[in-house]
Design a protein around this nucleic acid. Structure first.
Lengths: 228, 228
DNA sequence: GCAAAAGTGTTGTGTCTACACCCATGT
DNA sequence: ACATGGGTGTAGACACAACACTTTTGC
């Protein structure tokens, strides 16, 4: 045990979703100083007896139904003594992902904001949010993390749209389909989507094969020799 | 401000080095309960006014000269309330790398241990160490992180040996050289190493081009279209 | 000359992008 | 018929592993 003071510890989360044609983050308008009125990440103090992951889930429950968060992973722990004016506070940030289409009822002080046009954020929450976006973009390339952003079933062009919004650049439907099929990340459900007003061939309906994060591309240059 | 108790916060580090023909971790034998006599990671309490990174550097200084740690990055923050018997303690773990050849004078309670044959470790330090090794292995593939394990100058076969030890499998000198040269990670110094007793062609001497972590292989499947 | 060690040439494979082309539907 | 998307076929670029072969040294 130790005598001197200890820092307070908060859990925070950048909760991201593709909505309104872009990548958006769930933000919360502060009701007290410091940064009164500024936007900030949801989260709050760590309580005795809980883990950080339990803590962030508990705090998120006040904003969104936790079951709507399809993926949650730890991002980084921030410890600059000046990050909070007037309090010695450590923050552990998480990245949370909510599938497209889910539209949680939000408290009045909470709203979605485009990550590409963030308002002024309290504390170091801007860098956390941008770090979350980078993590997401990287993992879209070599894991099945798309499952946490996509609805349960979707057409390739819907998925293409989603990847393009998350990655911030255009994505080819042709190649997206082939990459994800070759890796066994998505599968054809056998169903088809009726064609729209202007006609066009009905689209096949796909789904992600597993609802848990998996590394699908080992990107292992310098891989083990072919044991022969 | 907040009334109730706060957790204590410690910084820890898995410090890894290739030595004695294998990947080894710097461990410290505990001098007090709990886990008296067991081996554990170096580290200690976070002090007011310092960041976690400053904290781990300060604690490491008691074990090794901090200038000998060529790379340091945050790994993970552990918060299981039961991880420390008798204290509510959060730990933020770092990964530190020390170049081959550096042989720090160690205090008597400190020693290197092969990661593949770890003794029983205190707390959750075993999983931290293994997580550190995994992080290192992954980054060897797509970054220049080898700079932090290699001496300043080296031949390709020395580097091959080093990569093989870190990765845990054989590595081809031929392909290692080509991959790292193609990516511009290493460069030829122009010098040559004299051949040994049994003869053999003198080896060219190489060095890493930058002493800071860089991502060298964007592994970006689904990369942006070729802007035309 | 011969062994030893370093380094290059070359081939084959797999994964990816790009783009041409074919398919199924509505009007 | 023809427009509108959806989907497949295919060629080229690239990075890599594997392995044969050449180079440079000591003895």
């Amino acid at each position: 045990m130790r005598q001197s003071t200890n820092p307070t510890h908060v859990s925070l989360a950048t909760v991201l979703q593709i909505r309104g044609g872009g990548l958006q983050a769930l933000l919360w308008q502060r009701g007290r100083e410091p940064f009164l009125g500024a936007w900030s990440l949801p989260g709050g103090y760590l309580e005795e007896g809980e883990t950080l992951e339990q803590s962030i889930k508990r705090h998120l429950a006040a904003k969104v139904d936790v079951r709507e968060v399809a993926h949650l992973e730890q991002l980084v722990t921030l410890s600059d003594p000046d990050r909070h004016p007037g309090e010695w506070q450590i923050a552990t940030a998480y990245l949370g992902l909510v599938p497209t289409g889910v539209d949680p009822k939000l408290p009045v002080d909470t709203a979605w904001h485009r990550v590409s046009r963030l308002p002024r954020l309290a504390f170091d929450h801007r860098e956390i949010t941008l770090a979350g976006r980078e993590r997401l973009r990287a993992k879209l390339s070599y894991t099945n993390i798309g499952f946490a952003l996509a609805p349960r079933e979707f057409t390739i062009s819907e998925l293409r749209e989603l990847y393009a919004n998350a990655l911030g650049h255009d994505v080819s439907a042709t190649n997206l389909q082939r990459v994800l099929l070759r890796r066994g990340v998505i599968e054809n459900t056998g169903e088809r989507r009726a064609s729209g007003r202007g006609g066009g061939r009905p689209a096949a309906v796909f789904r992600f094969r597993t609802p848990r994060l998996e590394v699908t591309d080992e990107f292992a240059v310098l891989r083990p020799p072919s044991s022969r």
